[in-house]
Amino acid sequence: MGRPKKPIQRRKNGIYFVQLHEAGRRVVRSLETRDPIKAAPRAEQAIRELQEAETGPRWTADTPVLVPAGDHPIDEHTPAIETTWSEVAQSQEEIKTLAWIDLIREADNVRKRKEGKPYGSSWHRNIGIAIRGVPFTLQEASPQTIRAWIKELQDAGLSGLTINNKCSLLSEEEADRMVGCNWGVSL
Rank of each mutant, 00 (worst) to 15 (best):
P57D: 15
Q90S: 06
I47E: 06
R25S: 11
A69H: 08
S30Q: 06
I81A: 10
P36D: 04
I95A: 09
W85T: 01
R10G: 09
I8C: 04
G14K: 05
E32Q: 13
E76A: 12
P4Q: 05
S91I: 00
Q92F: 00
E94Q: 14
G14H: 05
A23M: 03
A89T: 02
A46Q: 13
H77N: 14
G14A: 11
W85M: 04
A39E: 02
P4L: 13
P79V: 01
W59R: 03
E76S: 06
E32A: 11
D35F: 00
I37P: 00
D62I: 03
V67T: 06
Q9T: 08
R10Y: 00
T60C: 12
I47A: 04
A23E: 05
K12I: 03
A61H: 06
T84D: 05
Y16E: 13
Q19Y: 00
A46N: 11
G2S: 14
M1F: 07
V27D: 09
L50G: 04
P79I: 00
D75Q: 03
T63F: 03
A40I: 00
A53M: 01
I37E: 04
I15V: 14
A69K: 05
V28F: 12
H21Q: 06
K38H: 05
P64D: 12
N13V: 07
E87C: 05
Q90A: 15
R29P: 03
G2A: 15
A69N: 01
W59T: 01
E82I: 00
R29G: 07
D62C: 08
R25L: 09
F17Q: 15
Q92G: 09
L50E: 04
M1E: 03
A99R: 13
E22Q: 12
K96I: 04
I8M: 15
N13S: 13
W59H: 15
R48A: 15
D71I: 00
R58G: 10
A80R: 08
G70M: 10
T55A: 14
A39K: 01
E32H: 13
D62K: 12
L66Q: 05
G14L: 06
Q19I: 02
T97V: 07
W85E: 03
I15H: 10
